[in-house]
């Protein structure tokens, strides 16, 4: 269907789409309903990678033993989304496709070096997460292409997820951080850190990661992070506040009690 009519708007859990539709801000009039495609709801291991179907809901992610074992920070992110009603309908594919800079699963997927699997009539292509978003609410997904799944290579190290918002649930997040800290070895340790709501898209912070890997003091790493991110000054909070929060989250992650 999408091949013949690429302008059809895909529709999954509708937790973003119906808000726009109810408000009359959605221009689209023709839809392609994906909700019944149960085959796209599977969570499984494939060739060593964790493969999550685009239609897996937040509730599916929370309940999955595979996700809890391999990517606990994703289960943590799903638990922080909306209320149960939203968790029961909202999908990971919808979260990724919707491309909000505040999408809660996005920093997790960015830190985990996830791959977005896109399919259209012509075939499948795989796009690394850090090349998926091109600007504010812009992605490389072409009209007629569907997100069919997300693949996450094995993750080694301690995982972290934190969302700081105005309310525990329901809030559009002010700042979200996900990170993976590799085991310390003689030659240092690997660090992968991603943040949401500090830029037009989810971002990794390579300079901060490098500082962490080099074994710099936590104060120095925090300074690097505050220089590296350029948060948006908006109604929700000031850029300065977000920088400070990000630095605090980083310290909590690195100094460590909190697990994903």
């Amino acid at each position: 269907m999408l091949r013949d009519e690429p302008t059809l708007t895909p529709l999954a859990g509708c937790t973003d789409l119906y808000v726009a539709l109810n408000f009359g801000t959605l221009k689209d009039t023709r839809f392609l309903d994906l909700w019944r495609l149960d085959r796209l709801r599977k969570i499984e291991l494939r060739g060593g990678a964790l493969s999550i179907g685009a239609l897996a809901t937040f509730t599916d992610l929370i309940r999955s033993t595979l996700v809890r074992k391999r990517l606990p920070m994703l289960a943590a992110a799903a638990r922080d989304v909306g209320g149960v009603q939203i968790q029961n309908r909202g999908t990971i594919g919808g979260n990724v496709a919707n491309a909000s800079p505040a999408g809660d699963t996005l920093p997790v997927l960015a830190a985990a070096d996830a791959v977005v699997v896109l399919q259209q009539a012509g075939g499948i292509r795989r796009v690394p997460f850090d090349g998926f978003y091109t600007g504010y609410r812009q992605t490389v997904r072409r009209p007629g292409e569907l997100i069919v799944g997300i693949e996450i290579p094995p993750v080694r190290g301690r995982q972290f997820f934190r969302k700081v918002g105005t309310r525990a649930a329901q809030a559009i997040s002010k700042i979200v951080m996900a990170g993976i800290l590799g085991p310390a070895t003689g030659s240092g340790r690997t660090a992968r850190i991603a943040l949401g709501s500090v830029a037009p898209t989810v971002v990794r912070v390579p300079r901060t990661e490098a500082a962490l890997a080099s074994g710099a003091s936590i104060e120095a790493v925090q300074r690097t992070l505050m220089e590296e991110i350029a948060p948006i000054d908006d109604l929700r909070s000031t850029a300065e506040y977000r920088r400070r929060v990000a630095a605090n989250l980083l310290a909590r992650f690195v100094c460590g009690a909190s697990r994903g």
């Binding site: 509708c14 937790t15 119906y18 109810n22 309903d33 909700w35 149960v84 009603q85 029961n88 309908r89």
Partner: peptide, 13 residues
């Protein structure tokens, strides 16, 4: 058996 917001659910679902 699962709670959902019926204001966000299309009849088709």
């Amino acid at each position: 058996g699962m709670p959902v917001n019926s204001c966000l659910v299309p009849a088709a679902h």
